Simulated scan of single mutants.
Amino acid sequence: MAAPRPVIALAGVPAPWIDRAAAILAGGGYGVLRCDDPATYIPQLIDTFVALILAGADGDGCTWIARAKTEQGTRRIPVLAVVTDAPEDAQALQAGADACVCP
């Protein structure tokens, strides 16, 4: 029996990097879960046993990060924030992101 593929969630509003990240991750053998509905975000993360969350830190992106980090069932999932500048980096870390990357 093959081991299940790790699932990586792409959270938040559509951003230029999301489609490219989804293609790269799927090509690398990861499952990809797109989370763009705040009402189903946390249940999706829990039900899918997500291994990592990639979230944009622009606009309301920090809200997605904070929700994942404050919910009991998801707070241990690592969150990698995708930022475009230093102020976004600081905001994402303050919201609870474990690390930040800039594409």
Rank of each mutant, 00 (worst) to 15 (best):
M1H: 05
M1D: 06
P4M: 09
P4G: 08
P4V: 10
P4W: 02
P4C: 05
P4Q: 09
R5H: 09
R5C: 10
R5L: 09
P6I: 10
V7Q: 05
I8N: 06
L10V: 11
A11M: 03
V13Q: 14
V13T: 11
P14F: 04
P14G: 08
A15H: 05
A15P: 00
P16G: 13
P16V: 00
P16E: 11
P16A: 14
I18T: 08
I18K: 13
R20H: 11
R20W: 03
R20P: 00
A21M: 07
A21I: 02
A22V: 00
A22E: 08
A23V: 05
A23H: 02
I24G: 02
I24R: 03
L25V: 06
L25G: 09
L25F: 09
G29Q: 08
Y30G: 14
Y30F: 15
G31T: 02
G31Q: 07
L33K: 03
L33V: 05
R34M: 03
R34W: 00
R34C: 05
R34G: 00
C35M: 04
C35H: 05
D36Q: 12
D36K: 06
D36P: 01
D37P: 00
A39T: 03
A39W: 01
T40Y: 07
T40N: 12
Y41H: 15
Y41N: 09
I42P: 06
Q44L: 11
Q44Y: 02
L45G: 08
I46A: 15
F49E: 14
V50M: 06
A51E: 08
A51R: 09
A51K: 07
L52G: 05
L52M: 14
L52K: 05
I53W: 04
L54H: 01
A57V: 00
A57G: 13
G59M: 07
D60Y: 01
D60F: 02
D60R: 11
T63Y: 04
W64G: 04
W64C: 06
W64T: 08
I65H: 07
I65C: 15
I65D: 11
A66D: 13
A66G: 03
A68P: 11
A68S: 15
A68C: 15
K69F: 06
T70G: 03
E71R: 11
E71Y: 02
E71A: 15
E71N: 12
Q72V: 14
Q72E: 14
G73R: 04
G73D: 06
G73K: 00
T74G: 02
T74D: 01
T74M: 01
T74H: 01
R75N: 11
R75H: 11
R76C: 07
I77W: 01
I77R: 06
P78T: 13
P78G: 11
L80S: 10
L80I: 08
V82C: 13
V82L: 14
V82H: 00
V83Y: 01
D85V: 13
D85R: 07
A86T: 15
P87N: 12
P87L: 14
P87V: 15
E88W: 01
D89I: 07
Q91Y: 03
Q91W: 02
Q91L: 14
L93V: 08
L93F: 03
Q94C: 07
Q94H: 10
A95G: 09
A95I: 04
A95D: 06
G96Y: 06
A97G: 15
A97T: 07
A97F: 11
D98F: 12
D98W: 10
A99L: 12
A99C: 10
A99N: 12
C102Q: 14
C102F: 04
